[in-house]
Structure formats: structure tokens, C-alpha cells
């Protein structure tokens, strides 16, 4: 009798230990088989040979990595990607910060409207956004028409296929991420702090520099790294709006994979991109972890 009881109890305990694994099974299958396995496969693929017209030839070589860091086409692309992402992220964080501050300081009735506005770029497909700017910048586009009819210019102008257009598109796509991160940080703060600053005789600028900026530094850092990761991986916007010479890593991955059928090289490029993203994530995590321990 007591024996049966213990076995029943043991069975129950075992079932209880198995329950979370059964619940997580579908998620783990997706992550391990469709993310872990492909990543491992990609890592292996980046060492394969590429000969002639075949997709790849099994083998082991560091050629593709050496190629990436010595061939000028690829070093330029890596440099372009990092530069473009850095610049776009800085601008995104500045605009996003100003936008979040605006929404935070405005009366509550404006809030819903602005939050809805900020959701737009997030909910609209990147391709639709690209197409929207694609109709705005060219010679026969809205910008040129608007400037002409307002009399500011006399000849049609085109900003299409310039680095500026690529930049505008990139910032647009990343802005909502920054905005929502920063708004949530600001929402956790007490607005009366600004009043206290003003009461003590500080001008808005001084209050901003001495009170607001130090308190939101962690949030700014997280927002910056989020945008940086996002812009590093986005290739459609810069390649569709920017000049033909604007080769980012994402563009080269697609080019090598679909255009040239060079799987090993495309994989090596992806690995470099993944490592770059991982480094940025780890870096931010360590920095923000330090900040929170200081505050707590």
C-alpha cells in the first residue's frame, strides 16, 4: 500500500519535472532546429570551398575570411555598414529622444495621438516605406514638385539614390524602437524633478544637462545599441534608396547568395555580421548592468 503510494508520488514528481519541457517543446524545436542548426550549418559552410559555378564544394579553408578582410570590396562594405549604422543610430537617438521628451512633457490628451503616430513606421511594411520615399525624392517626386510650386527652386531636383535618401529611410525605420525605449524610461521618472530644477534657478538647458541627461543615460545607451543592431541588419532600405555604390554587408550577403550563388562567402559575411551584433549586445548589456547595480 505505502509502496504503491511512493511510486504514485514518484510518478507525479517525475511528471511535474517533465511538464515544463513538454510545454517548451514546440518553442525549443523551432529555436534549435530552425535557428541553432542553420547557424551551425552556416558556420561550417563559411569554411567550404567555392569552385566554378557550383554553390559550394566541401572542404576546409580560411580563404573567405581572409578575402573579407583583405579584398577592398568587402572591407569597404564592412566599413560603410558600420559608418552608416553609427551615423543613422546617432541621429535616430537624437530625434527619438526629442520626440519622447515632447510626448512626455505634453499634456496627456496629445499622448495617444503621438504614440499612434510613432506606431506607424513600426506597423507598415519596410517595403511600403521604401516605396513611399521612392516617390518622394526623385525628379518627378513630391519633394521636387512641392519646392517648385512654392518657388524655392526653378529646376527640378532629385535626391533619389543619394546617401541622404538612404539615411532618411534608415532613420525612419529605426525611429519607433528608439522612441518607445526612451519613452518607457522617461515614464518611470518623476516630472516634478524638472520643476525642482527650475525652482532652484536652473534654466531649461541646465536642467536638461544636469538632471535629465544623467538619469536617462542607460536608456539612451540601450536605444543606441538597438538602433545600431537594427541598421546593421537592414539592407533593403539603403540599397533601394541609396546610390548603387552604397554596398552594405546585408546587400553583399544577398548579392553573393542569390546573385552569384557563392554560398560559402555569403555565410562568411553573415558570420561576421552575427559576431558584430553579438559584440554590440554583450557590450551594452555589461554597461547597462553596471549602471543598474550602481543605482540599486
Amino acid at each position: 500500500m505505502s509502496d504503491a503510494y511512493t511510486t504514485a508520488r514518484a510518478r507525479l514528481a517525475r511528471r511535474k519535472a517533465a511538464a515544463p519541457w513538454i510545454l517548451m517543446l514546440p518553442a525549443l524545436i523551432i529555436v534549435l532546429i530552425f535557428f541553432g542548426l542553420p547557424t551551425a550549418y552556416m558556420a561550417r559552410m563559411s569554411f567550404n570551398l567555392h569552385e566554378g559555378a557550383k554553390l559550394y564544394t566541401p572542404g576546409f579553408t580560411f580563404d573567405h575570411y581572409i578575402n573579407l578582410f583583405s579584398n577592398e570590396v568587402f572591407t569597404t562594405a564592412i566599413w560603410t555598414t558600420v559608418k552608416l549604422s553609427l551615423m543613422a543610430s546617432v541621429v535616430t537617438v537624437i530625434i527619438g529622444y526629442a520626440f519622447a521628451l515632447l510626448v512626455w512633457l505634453k499634456p496627456a490628451r496629445w499622448r495617444l495621438l503621438f504614440v499612434g503616430l510613432a506606431l506607424c513606421p513600426l506597423l507598415i511594411s519596410e517595403i511600403a516605406i521604401i516605396f513611399g520615399w521612392w516617390m518622394f525624392f526623385p525628379k518627378n517626386g513630391l519633394l521636387s514638385f512641392a519646392l517648385m510650386s512654392s518657388g524655392l527652386i526653378t529646376d527640378k531636383i532629385s535626391l533619389m539614390y543619394t546617401e541622404f535618401a538612404a539615411f532618411v529611410g534608415l532613420v525612419y525605420v529605426t525611429l519607433p524602437f528608439c522612441f518607445f525605449i526612451l519613452l518607457s524610461i522617461l515614464d518611470g521618472m518623476d516630472k516634478r524633478m524638472l520643476e525642482a530644477g527650475a525652482d532652484l534657478g536652473a534654466s531649461p538647458l541646465v536642467t536638461f544637462r544636469e538632471v535629465l541627461l544623467p538619469l536617462t543615460r542607460t536608456g539612451l545607451l540601450v536605444a543606441f545599441s538597438q538602433s545600431f543592431i537594427w541598421t546593421m541588419g537592414t539592407y533593403a532600405t539603403p540599397s533601394a534608396l541609396g546610390p548603387d555604390t552604397l554596398w552594405t554587408m546585408g546587400f553583399l550577403i544577398q548579392e553573393q547568395m542569390l546573385g552569384r550563388s557563392n554560398w560559402p562567402l555569403a555565410s562568411a559575411l553573415s558570420m561576421v555580421l552575427v559576431v558584430g551584433v553579438a559584440v554590440v549586445i554583450t557590450f551594452t548589456r555589461s554597461l547597462s548592468a553596471k549602471r543598474t547595480t550602481l543605482h540599486v
Binding site: M42, S270, L273
Partner: peptide, 16 residues
């Protein structure tokens, strides 16, 4: 996977 660029995920699944 949420932090991985779409290009990388697409490429990985395609070759695997």
C-alpha cells in the same frame, strides 16, 4: 532569433 538580422536568418534556413 529576435536580435538576428533577417538576412542572416533567411540565409541560414535557406542553406540548411
Amino acid at each position: 532569433p529576435l536580435f538576428m538580422p533577417g538576412v542572416v536568418l533567411g540565409l541560414g534556413v535557406a542553406i540548411a
